[in-house]
Design a binder for these strands. Structure first.
Lengths: 134, 134
DNA sequence: CGGGATCCTCAGGGATACTG
DNA sequence: CAGTATCCCTGAGGATCCCG
């Protein structure tokens, strides 16, 4: 465990190589969290994922899965059936992460309306200001 | 374009307009969560943020802050000092979100070593396989 | 100090075709 | 079914200059 140096009362600084940055750099893309979230309850096969994660392309799905597997977050199991079958599931490590991702998902469900309302209000105010300036 | 009809029922499907997707689309970039996290403990000024969030450009910081403000997650307060001072802080809504982001940050700190180890192992296995075929 | 406006790049990611 | 291989393009984001 390497203790991070945090300036006492002053909030932490986000140096390029702090753990949060490293993890966020891998998770903060369009799809990783969605995939993790989809795998949370059960193993899922490739094309099932492709169908469930609406809008993802086959290439990006493949890439992202490989990345997540490399990070030790998901497990890839091949069944020598005909035709071949591949199941993706969360590892123990991935399960712990999926907890916090699920929290984010819950936050989203509970607060999306508030966010959308805030956007509308912001846009209205912006429009008014615009009109005033001509 | 391709209007997918969502199959009702089994499991949760991630349609393009589900709340999780909408929120993730706004948060899942390189900087939003880091900024939210930096603002968690105290209001911070523009250039202070720029210095603390290592590597972010002025333009992107500005863009991201505006986006977060539009979403009702952060508040922008201007002080008519000379020269001008601007403080960014979390709104109530932003505070609730920052909780779960902090959870992600904690996960990162606790598990980054495991992730890095998994990567090494994955790369080694890949290299071995490559050698066997080469 | 806190940005806005421009220009430019480079990689994320879409579309399509092919394979074991 | 579960991917790989290419081609291509858009847009996130960096660099730079400017301004109240």
């Amino acid at each position: 465990m390497n203790e991070r140096v945090e300036t006492p009362g002053n909030g932490n600084v986000f140096s390029e190589n702090c753990p949060t940055r490293q993890v966020l750099d891998r998770l903060a893309d369009k799809w990783s969290m969605l995939i993790m979230n989809r795998l949370r309850t059960e193993p899922v096969r490739f094309n099932q994922l492709r169908r469930d994660i609406e809008g993802i392309s086959q290439k990006v799905l493949s890439q992202t899965l490989k990345k997540l597997e490399r990070d030790g977050l998901i497990h890839r199991q091949v069944f020598a059936s005909v035709p071949i079958t591949v199941e993706y599931s969360l590892t123990k490590l991935g399960q712990t992460l999926s907890q916090t991702i699920q929290a984010l998902s819950h936050w989203a469900e509970h607060n999306i309306e508030t966010v959308l309302a805030a956007q509308k209000q912001y846009d209205n105010l912006a429009k008014q200001r615009e009109a005033r300036l001509g």
